[in-house]
Computed example of a mutant assay.
Amino acid sequence: MHTISLTAGLIRGALELERTARGLLPHRLPARARAQCADPQLALAESQPSGVRLVFRTRATAVELDTLPTKRVYTGAPPRPDGVYELLVDGRPAGRASLTEGDTLTVDLATGSAEHRPGPVGTVRFAGLPDTVKDVEIWLPHNETTELVALRADAPVEPVPDRGRRVWLHHGSSISHGSDAASPTTTWPALAASLGGVELVNLGLGGSALLDPFTARALRDTPADLISVKLGINVVNADVMRLRAFGPAVHGFLDTVREGHPDTPLLVVSPVLCPMHEDTPGPTAMDLAALGAGRLRYRATGDPAERAAGKLTLGVVREELARIVRERAAEDTRLHYLDGRELYGEADFAELPLPDGLHPDTAGHRRIGERFAALAFAPDGPFAAGPAA
């Protein structure tokens, strides 16, 4: 087996690679952004490599990847499945693997305390690949922090030349991150990117789409041909601002993105349907009664009457986002708006309910991804095919 040097040329979807004692840790926010916020939720989310994949050209018939994943254990909650590594050969699914090895992060949901225990490195192996020159992709687990330790193959490896695809840069919340999807290529952004024939850079950050200025700067500074921002649900979940602050924060976020991408198609997407928060403000809390029964569910703890004092609900957020985009689009003709309920609405909830009250399952992700691709990449859609920038 050849030992392959892990370099940036073989890794796509990460904004930064941190050199560690063992190897490389992909990050989806740069160090400057990470230094401006000490929130453990953000640190966890941005280090989980949703959309990050190794991409290379080889005629190898066997490939091995050593990694050090971080497994999450929530006290009192059902066990989480191990993260999934997916292999694509010339764009087609060719295998899946998981690791039981790795570090363990145990979180007490009642107190918020966390304990980190070190564990061993593991190896995923894909064998029986065709003995021809081919493009290989290994998608890393979208919901498991993954440190890359070593890559081996039984033939030389080289970077894949630029395929001329447009780069789609997306930012959103836990649903965009891929919560409750079965695997990294079945998150809705990954599905939509495949259907749209674009290269994905996914800045979906579970629990952390909070209109943070450092996230806007990361979007501003990342090369892209297409940009979308799915905003609103986390602002309600965390109850971080009132209507007075929300509008200017959205304007400022879009202003910053436009500093680096003045002419790039920019799509603002409002939240998909989430019945618990349509008319009830946050914050969102764990349903402890359900947790005691071994089920993970969430509930809204606000009072609908609090809307009069400026508390945000999804209904209020959608109205404000639609107004802001409509007013800005009078001058910014490449700015567009998509109501998230066109991706997942009342009829979809009746057919494919949210298992935990907040996140879709794999079938829900597929529906959202297919709908997004059909709307955004349509001939008359905001991401209609054209020359790469």
Rank of each mutant, 00 (worst) to 15 (best):
L6M: 11
L6D: 12
G13A: 08
A14R: 05
E18D: 13
T20D: 14
R22L: 15
L24P: 04
P26W: 01
H27F: 11
L29H: 08
R32T: 14
A35I: 06
D39T: 03
L42P: 01
A43Y: 02
L44S: 09
A45V: 03
E46W: 03
Q48V: 07
P49D: 14
S50E: 07
G51E: 13
R53I: 01
R53T: 02
F56S: 06
R59C: 13
T61V: 08
E64W: 00
E64A: 15
L68S: 07
P69M: 11
K71Q: 14
Y74M: 11
G76R: 06
G76L: 09
A77K: 08
P79Q: 11
P81L: 07
E86P: 00
L87A: 09
L88N: 09
V89A: 11
R92W: 00
P93S: 10
L99H: 05
T106L: 10
T111L: 07
V121W: 08
V121P: 02
G122A: 09
P130N: 12
D131H: 14
V133I: 14
K134Y: 06
D135H: 06
I138R: 00
I138G: 00
W139Q: 10
E144M: 13
V149L: 11
A153L: 01
D154T: 00
A155H: 04
D162L: 05
D162I: 03
R166C: 04
W168Q: 13
L169S: 07
S174W: 08
I175S: 07
S176Y: 02
S179F: 03
L195Q: 07
L195D: 08
V198Y: 02
V201Q: 03
L203K: 05
L210D: 06
P213M: 06
P213I: 09
R220G: 04
D225Y: 05
I227P: 00
G232H: 02
V235S: 06
N237S: 12
R244Q: 12
R244T: 13
F246G: 10
G247M: 05
H251Q: 12
G252L: 08
G252D: 15
D255E: 11
V257K: 00
V257M: 01
E259L: 14
E259Y: 01
G260M: 06
D263M: 05
T264L: 04
V269F: 01
V269Y: 01
L273I: 09
L273A: 10
C274E: 07
P275K: 11
M276W: 03
P281N: 12
G282V: 09
M286T: 14
M286D: 03
M286R: 11
D287P: 10
A289P: 00
L291N: 13
L291F: 08
L296H: 02
A300H: 10
T301K: 03
G302V: 05
D303C: 05
A308C: 02
L312K: 08
R318S: 07
E319V: 00
E319Q: 10
L321C: 03
D332H: 09
D332Q: 15
G340P: 01
E342M: 02
E346A: 15
E346I: 12
P355I: 08
L358A: 10
P360G: 09
D361T: 06
T362M: 09
R366T: 05
R371K: 10
R371T: 05
A373W: 02
G381D: 12
A384S: 12
A389Y: 05
